[in-house]
Amino acid sequence: MAPSFDTTSHTVCVMDASSHFGLTLVQTLLQRGYTVHASVQKYGEENIFKGVSANPDKLKLFRSDPFDYHSIVDALRGCSGLFYTFEPPLDQPNYDEYMADVEVRAAHNVLEACGQTETIDKVVFTSSATAVVWREDRKSMEADLDERHWSDVNFCRKFKLWHGVSKTMAEKSAWALAMDRGVNMVSINAGLLMADDLSLKHPYMRGAAEMYEDGVFVTVDLSFLVDAHICVYEDVSSYGRYLCFNHIINTHQDALHLARKLAPSASSSLPQSGDCGKSFIEQRISNKKLNKLMVDFEEA
Rank of each mutant, 00 (worst) to 15 (best):
residue 70 H to I: 00
residue 70 H to K: 10
residue 71 S to A: 05
residue 72 I to M: 02
residue 73 V to K: 13
residue 73 V to N: 03
residue 73 V to H: 03
residue 73 V to S: 08
residue 74 D to I: 02
residue 74 D to G: 03
residue 74 D to H: 02
residue 75 A to K: 05
residue 76 L to S: 06
residue 77 R to I: 03
residue 77 R to V: 01
residue 78 G to P: 04
residue 78 G to F: 07
residue 78 G to T: 07
residue 79 C to P: 05
residue 79 C to M: 05
residue 79 C to A: 14
residue 80 S to M: 05
residue 80 S to H: 12
residue 80 S to N: 13
residue 81 G to Y: 10
residue 81 G to V: 10
residue 82 L to K: 07
residue 83 F to H: 09
residue 83 F to R: 10
residue 83 F to D: 07
residue 84 Y to W: 14
residue 84 Y to F: 15
residue 84 Y to T: 05
residue 84 Y to K: 08
residue 85 T to N: 14
residue 85 T to V: 11
residue 86 F to A: 06
residue 86 F to L: 00
residue 87 E to F: 11
residue 87 E to C: 10
residue 88 P to H: 03
residue 88 P to W: 02
residue 89 P to N: 07
residue 89 P to V: 07
residue 90 L to I: 05
residue 90 L to G: 14
residue 92 Q to I: 00
residue 94 N to G: 02
residue 94 N to S: 11
residue 96 D to I: 00
residue 98 Y to Q: 02
residue 98 Y to S: 07
residue 99 M to E: 05
residue 100 A to R: 00
residue 100 A to V: 01
residue 100 A to W: 01
residue 101 D to K: 07
residue 101 D to E: 11
residue 101 D to A: 02
residue 102 V to G: 00
residue 102 V to L: 03
residue 102 V to W: 04
residue 103 E to R: 01
residue 103 E to F: 02
residue 104 V to H: 02
residue 105 R to A: 11
residue 105 R to N: 11
residue 106 A to T: 02
residue 106 A to C: 08
residue 106 A to Q: 01
residue 106 A to M: 01
residue 106 A to H: 04
residue 108 H to Q: 13
residue 108 H to S: 12
residue 108 H to P: 00
residue 108 H to N: 01
residue 110 V to Q: 04
residue 110 V to W: 03
residue 110 V to Y: 06
residue 111 L to F: 04
residue 111 L to V: 15
residue 111 L to Y: 02
residue 112 E to H: 09
residue 112 E to F: 08
residue 113 A to Y: 06
residue 113 A to M: 08
residue 113 A to G: 06
residue 113 A to F: 07
residue 114 C to S: 10
residue 115 G to T: 10
residue 115 G to I: 11
residue 116 Q to R: 15
residue 117 T to R: 06
residue 117 T to N: 06
residue 118 E to S: 15
residue 118 E to I: 11
residue 119 T to M: 09
residue 119 T to G: 11
residue 120 I to D: 05
residue 120 I to N: 00
residue 120 I to M: 09
residue 121 D to M: 13
residue 121 D to L: 14
residue 122 K to Q: 12
residue 122 K to T: 11
residue 122 K to D: 10
residue 123 V to M: 00
residue 124 V to L: 09
residue 124 V to C: 08
residue 125 F to A: 04
residue 125 F to S: 06
residue 126 T to K: 02
residue 126 T to H: 10
residue 126 T to I: 15
residue 126 T to C: 14
residue 127 S to M: 05
residue 127 S to K: 04
residue 128 S to V: 02
residue 129 A to W: 03
residue 129 A to F: 08
residue 129 A to Y: 01
residue 129 A to R: 05
residue 131 A to H: 06
residue 131 A to D: 07
residue 131 A to I: 07
residue 132 V to Q: 04
residue 133 V to N: 08
residue 133 V to W: 09
residue 133 V to Q: 02
residue 134 W to T: 07
residue 134 W to S: 09
residue 134 W to P: 03
residue 134 W to F: 15
residue 135 R to L: 14
residue 135 R to I: 13
residue 135 R to M: 14
residue 136 E to N: 13
residue 137 D to T: 13
residue 138 R to Y: 09
residue 139 K to Y: 11
residue 139 K to H: 14
residue 139 K to L: 15
residue 140 S to I: 10
residue 142 E to T: 15
residue 142 E to D: 14
residue 142 E to L: 12
residue 143 A to Q: 13
residue 144 D to C: 15
residue 144 D to P: 08
residue 145 L to P: 11
residue 145 L to A: 13
residue 146 D to Q: 13
residue 147 E to K: 09
residue 147 E to I: 06
residue 148 R to F: 12
residue 148 R to Y: 13
residue 148 R to C: 14
residue 149 H to D: 15
